[in-house]
Amino acid sequence: MVICGGVIKMENKTLKKPMTSRGTLGTVSWFFQVISGLFLVFFVGVHLYLAHIDFGHPIVFYDSVINNLKNPWWLLFYIAFVWVVTYHGLNGLKGILYDMGTRPKTRKYIAYILVAVYIVTVIYGTILAIIVSQIVIP
């Protein structure tokens, strides 16, 4: 199998790859986009089940969230979730913004801004999760 310019040549047949952000994001960035996306299928699946099906009544959601985060494994799960989902979202946004005919210089600024937004978001999310896990329910 040979990968060449978005086209895979396999068994003497040429198969066109579907249109993605691979070309604009670059191979490494696209690779991490795919890997983080696969992790998110697991993270989002667990979160939707936990928060919307088997997690107590929404009115007492406050107690449920805090009790859940008091378990260090769930705290770690949600911190990792924040880091991965924010990366995936902002990296995807970078692909979209790059793919709109932006100049190389503009792309550099976009990258700097999105890295800054990522760092601020994950630090805030991590601190928020840790503080919330320490709250004593009245």
């Binding site: 406050y62 979202g89 946004l93 503080i131």
Partner: peptide, 22 residues
């Protein structure tokens, strides 16, 4: 993806209200 990203930040904002009490 854009819709989910918008919601993600909305979700972070709502969750920040955990700090304001039960």
């Amino acid at each position: 993806g854009v819709v989910i990203l918008f919601y993600l930040y909305l979700h972070y904002t709502v969750l920040s209200n955990l700090l304001h009490g039960q």
